[in-house]
């Protein structure tokens, strides 16, 4: 192939200061991964460049880093593929984590969030432990297998939009891990888990931006599992949070008139009086700008929509 420019984020905790970028040029061969090149840089040019790595086969999850602005595993990212889009390769540490040194971050907060979701199976204490395996259908296995393949690389957490805006957010990895158990037919602690998950920083704080699903190197699809958790919470009548009320209000509005009553929904979803009042100025301004229709009209033929709603959702 050719000489490729690498721009690597450097931060030395012993000298302190802000991070900076350092440029390295690497002779790349076809089939070289980003990790291969990092190893060449470390081995041949500068032994101080610091990063984590181990298996180099996309299973240990050590080498996730931001490569050209998106989080990926260095070991399974082909340089040639990047060069189709980028002229040079920028390497930065995971975002949403404190940096220890160069491309190495402190994962403490990540694990604390995992630990917070009761990250182990809790079988029904009333059932005797069977002599052999607990039975599980192939479909029940399929339900949780996808999340069970999470390699804890943190790519999803690094690119999570909600977490970037609010560090209380549990973030996709911990939430997907919750589904690992909540979705498991052998687990009996749904209520306990979901009670925590519907609180502030939980499932309803996800913006559904699908960054996590997009960057996941193992196609774990965290966003989809967060939505499944929402479904579980609603099925367990956990309906107090704004997010849950938003869904219920939305359903009711569409099921009735065929389309969303945007004016009414926020007032229904938000119960807190202070929060309601804080929405008033924007509401008034919208009204004055002609952006808040006074009357919500059902679509023509709304009866058919109501019929389907009744059939599939009940009254």
């Amino acid at each position: 192939m050719a000489e490729v420019r690498f721009n690597i984020y450097r931060l030395n905790p012993e000298t302190g200061g802000d991070g900076r970028f350092q440029e390295y040029k690497v002779e790349c061969e076809k089939g070289d991964t980003v990790l291969d090149c990092l190893n060449k840089i470390k081995g041949e040019q500068d032994g101080t460049v610091t990063y984590r790595m181990s298996c180099r086969s996309a299973i240990c999850g050590s080498c996730a880093m931001r490569i050209c602005g998106h989080t990926r595993l260095a070991c399974s990212t082909q340089v040639s593929g990047l060069l189709e889009i980028y002229e040079e390769i920028t390497l930065e540490p995971l975002q949403n984590f404190p940096v220890i040194k160069d491309l190495v971050v402190d994962m403490k907060a990540y694990w604390e969030k995992i630990e917070a979701i009761m990250p182990y199976m809790v079988p029904d204490a009333g059932e005797p432990v069977p002599e052999k395996e607990r039975l599980q259908s192939p479909e029940q296995f399929d339900t949780v297998f996808e999340v069970a393949t999470c390699i804890r690389c943190s790519a999803c957490v690094s690119d999570c939009t909600s977490l970037e805006a609010d560090d209380k957010f549990l973030a996709p990895a911990a939430l997907a891990k919750s589904f690992r158990f909540a979705g498991d037919s052998r687990d009996a602690a749904d209520k306990e888990r979901l009670t925590e998950l519907v609180k502030e920083g939980g499932i309803w704080d996800c913006v559904r931006c699908y960054e996590c699903t997009q960057v996941c190197p193992k196609d774990v699809r965290p966003a989809e599992h967060i939505i499944q958790l929402r479904e579980k919470a609603l099925n367990n009548q956990m309906e107090k949070s704004v997010g849950a009320r938003h869904v219920l209000g939305f359903m009711e509005s569409v099921g009735h008139s065929g389309q969303l009553d945007e004016g009414k929904l926020p007032m229904f979803a938000v119960k807190n009086i202070g929060a309601k009042i804080s929405m008033v100025p924007i509401g008034i301004k919208m009204f004055l700008k002609g952006k808040l229709p006074l009357k919500h009209k059902p679509i023509p033929g709304a009866e058919d929509v109501q019929r389907i709603y009744k059939k599939l959702e009940g009254e």
Binding site: Y120, M121, P123, V129, P130, E131, K132, E133, R134, L135, Q136, S137, P138, Q140, F141, V144, F145, A148, F181, D184, R186, D187
Partner: peptide, 20 residues
Amino acid sequence: VIYELEHMGCVFTRMDDGRV
């Protein structure tokens, strides 16, 4: 030891009858 792992929550591919 397989049953122990299974009881801890390990996922295993299943047969149609639900066994490992």
